[in-house]
Each structure stands twice: as C-alpha cells, then as structure tokens.
Amino acid sequence: MMRDAPISDRVVVYERPQALADIHTHYCPGCTHGISHRLVAEAIDELGLNDRAIIVASVGCSVFSYNYFDIDACEAAHGRAPAMATGLKRVSPDRLVFTYQGDGDLASIGTAEIIHAAARGEPVTAVFVNNAIYGMTGGQMAPTSLPGQKTTSSPFGRSTDIAGFPIRMSEVLAELDGSAYIVRRSLHNVKEIRRAKKAIKTAFKVQMAGLGFSMVELLSTCPTNWGMSASDALTWVADTMVPYYPLGDYRVIDAVKDL
C-alpha cells in the first residue's frame, strides 16, 4: 500500500535549508545556536534572498557563523557588528544585511554600537541570541545573567549589590524612535521555535522595506556552561529566563502590519 512507497515517492516536509552550508558546526550538543542558525537560513530561503544576504558575524560562540551559512559574510570586531552592518548596508542598500550576535557581544562590549544603530534607524537586522552567560570564554557572568545565577565568575550566584542588574535589551531598544520591529522570542519548545522563525522573517521583511532598525531577541541555552543536560536547559529557559525576560513584541510600528 502507500506505506510501502519508496522514500523517493514520499513528500519531503522538512529538510536542510539551502542557505545553511553543508558543514558540521562546532557548537556543543543541545546548543540552540544550531536552531537559530537554521531559522535564519529558512527565512532567507523563503524570502529568496540567498544571493543578496550578508551576515555580519560577531565574537563569541557565533564567531564562526560566517562559515555555517551559504551566503556572503563578514566578521566584525567584538561588539562592532552593528557598525559594520551600517557600512555594508549604506554602500549596498539592496542587500539584506544582518548581524548575528550573542549577549556578551551585543549587550556588553557592543552596547554603544547597537543602541546608536537603532537610534539612527539603520535598516539592518540584529539576531540577538541571549543565553545569559559568556559561552565561548568558559561560562563567565554576562550583563544578561540573572540575579543569583551561578557562573564561573559568580560562583555564589550573581550579586546585584556588586554586579547590578541584568539588561533587558529589547525593552531598551524599543524606546528608540529609529526602531521599527523589536521582539523577544524563545527557543525552548517547538511552538516557540516556530514563532521565532516567523519573527525573523518579519524582521528581514522590515529591513527590505526600509522601515528602520529591526531586532529579534532569542532566549537560548548554554547546556555546557549552565551545567545541565540539553533538555534541562530548555526547562530552565522556560521556568527561569522567560519570567525575567518576558516574550512579546516590544516595538512594532504600524507600517510593519501592512507587510
């Protein structure tokens, strides 16, 4: 019967996106960087922008992301990806220019660049992967680490007396008039992953329509440095990170609804 049909006769409902290079990534098992890479690649495929997309890779675990996409790429100095994206977009305004940054890059050393890129209303997109820790350097406290969170540089938990409070970047950037589309999504379950992909696609459309700055913040995991299994890390995102970093649309200008 139909069940015995050879696999070639079956309909492919999910396969590797074209915009993702056929390369094994260096990410740890269960790291959601792989998921966000795939979502970005799927959005590029679906918008047919494979020949026009440029990724500006940042510093952090995502430092090799220029290798992992089959699109044009550029590597920025630590935190300076929005500045480089600004230059690329201004000389080639017909290209899709996006940065792919972690929280140590965007919310720490690169805070000035991201805020001014948004304030200028640069028509670039930032994909902001927030996992509340410095992954590549060995699990130190990040500006986004939660109060009480144990890291290698806060072994007794983040003290707000000494280290202050985490920065909610989406809320900060949503206050700026140059921002057109600022949303926060999470990658902790299948439903939220699907919503995240839709948001990335919308952000790319916002850029191509020239409406202004767009950013999608993705709550992500770091199983290795959190000291958890991959599935426990997803639970930790849902139970601990989402209450501190509420998911939602923080700035969506009216023109976005017409896209």
């Binding site: 492919v12 396969e15 996106p17 269960g30 299948v190």
Partner: peptide, 27 residues
Amino acid sequence: DELCTGCAQCAVICPDVCITVYRDPIP
C-alpha cells in the same frame, strides 16, 4: 509499528539539522 506521522517536531527542535522528514502522499 509505523507510528511516525511526519509531524516534524523532532526536525524543528534538532540543533544540528540532522533530520529530514517525509510524509506519504495522500491518495
């Protein structure tokens, strides 16, 4: 027992894009 429905949830959550999902054509 051929229980797989091709719902693709495994492929959506796979961080390493290892999974390709197929469905039988609907007659």
